[in-house]
Computed example of a mutant assay.
Amino acid sequence: MEQARARDAASPAGSAVPRVPEQARGDGGGARGEHTHSEPPAPRVFRHSVRGQILDALRTALVDGELEPGALYSAPVLAERFGVSATPVREAMQQLALEGAVEVVPNRGFRVVRRGARELAELAEIRALIEVPVMLGLARTVPAERWAELRPLADATALAAARGDLAAYAESDRAFHRAVLALAGNQQLLLVAADLHRRAQWPAASAPPVRHADLVADAAEHSALLGALIAQDLAVVESLVREHFRGAGG
């Protein structure tokens, strides 16, 4: 995941920032901000709205570690790099602030929140408290053929892990868990679980890079979980879910 990165000489930490492909740029390079990072990550998935494109790009950069903990980013400068107005960038950053990924710095921009290992452990604990009982209940009631329908989602996580694509893995991992929990028929559960899941995927400050072998092993747990759910092996279901929350992809 090594990339060529530009540096903002006036940034407090001088941290690296992601580049933007030419097709995503609106200025052919542009000037740098005085005190903030100037280059946003490239959006991977284009949605119906500009705000959605920018939000996807920034979430990808968070997962990949390209938006660095403690670094300050300016909405107007990011907008210049994306070739859009500052409004959709600011709106996307405001959404990330609501999700706890960044904090607003008045008259300056948005700073990526520094998150520690303890916070990630707490998120894993909360997810287990919510999702383990739900999955155990589903294991008792959902027929085997319904679980088999989720195989393509499990396979998607395995493919992303094999490529070492953290952002694609994070997205496919959320899709798998969302499909499992959706079988409970509780919309509020899905909203709460999705928020916790996304927060759990943002790396902690100074965290070591995710090893490829760990990501592959984490993805393999999806297939193993489906097998346990089909077999209604409750002990294995509980063990796999708890371990998965502590894994590389969560």
Score class of each variant (00 low, 15 high):
residue 3 Q to Y: 09
residue 3 Q to V: 05
residue 10 A to T: 06
residue 11 S to Q: 10
residue 14 G to E: 10
residue 16 A to L: 01
residue 19 R to P: 09
residue 19 R to C: 09
residue 19 R to I: 11
residue 19 R to G: 11
residue 20 V to I: 02
residue 20 V to P: 02
residue 20 V to G: 02
residue 23 Q to I: 00
residue 25 R to A: 14
residue 26 G to F: 02
residue 27 D to W: 07
residue 28 G to E: 13
residue 30 G to W: 15
residue 34 E to Q: 14
residue 34 E to R: 12
residue 34 E to A: 14
residue 37 H to M: 13
residue 40 P to D: 05
residue 40 P to E: 03
residue 45 V to F: 05
residue 46 F to K: 04
residue 50 V to S: 05
residue 51 R to Q: 08
residue 54 I to D: 07
residue 57 A to E: 12
residue 62 L to T: 02
residue 63 V to Y: 07
residue 75 A to Y: 06
residue 80 E to A: 01
residue 80 E to Y: 00
residue 86 A to Y: 04
residue 88 P to C: 02
residue 88 P to F: 05
residue 90 R to H: 08
residue 91 E to Y: 01
residue 94 Q to R: 13
residue 95 Q to G: 05
residue 95 Q to S: 04
residue 97 A to I: 00
residue 99 E to T: 12
residue 102 V to K: 04
residue 102 V to Q: 13
residue 103 E to I: 05
residue 105 V to R: 10
residue 105 V to T: 03
residue 111 R to Q: 11
residue 114 R to E: 13
residue 114 R to Q: 11
residue 116 G to C: 01
residue 120 L to W: 10
residue 121 A to V: 04
residue 123 L to W: 09
residue 124 A to S: 12
residue 126 I to C: 03
residue 126 I to V: 11
residue 127 R to P: 12
residue 128 A to F: 09
residue 130 I to M: 14
residue 134 V to Y: 14
residue 135 M to G: 07
residue 136 L to N: 06
residue 137 G to D: 11
residue 138 L to K: 11
residue 140 R to A: 05
residue 141 T to Q: 13
residue 141 T to W: 09
residue 141 T to A: 09
residue 145 E to N: 01
residue 147 W to H: 03
residue 151 R to H: 04
residue 153 L to D: 09
residue 153 L to Q: 14
residue 155 D to H: 14
residue 159 L to M: 08
residue 163 R to W: 06
residue 164 G to Q: 01
residue 165 D to N: 07
residue 167 A to W: 11
residue 167 A to M: 03
residue 176 F to L: 12
residue 181 L to E: 09
residue 182 A to L: 08
residue 182 A to E: 15
residue 184 A to V: 08
residue 184 A to Q: 15
residue 189 L to Y: 10
residue 190 L to Q: 15
residue 191 L to H: 15
residue 191 L to W: 14
residue 194 A to D: 12
residue 196 L to R: 03
residue 197 H to D: 15
residue 198 R to G: 00
residue 199 R to N: 00
residue 199 R to T: 01
residue 201 Q to H: 02
residue 205 A to Y: 06
residue 208 P to H: 04
residue 213 A to I: 02
residue 218 D to F: 14
residue 219 A to W: 00
residue 226 L to Y: 00
residue 226 L to W: 12
residue 228 A to G: 03
residue 230 I to H: 12
residue 231 A to R: 08
residue 235 A to Y: 08
residue 236 V to I: 02
residue 236 V to T: 15
residue 236 V to A: 13
residue 237 V to H: 10
residue 238 E to K: 03
residue 241 V to G: 12
residue 242 R to K: 01
residue 244 H to L: 05
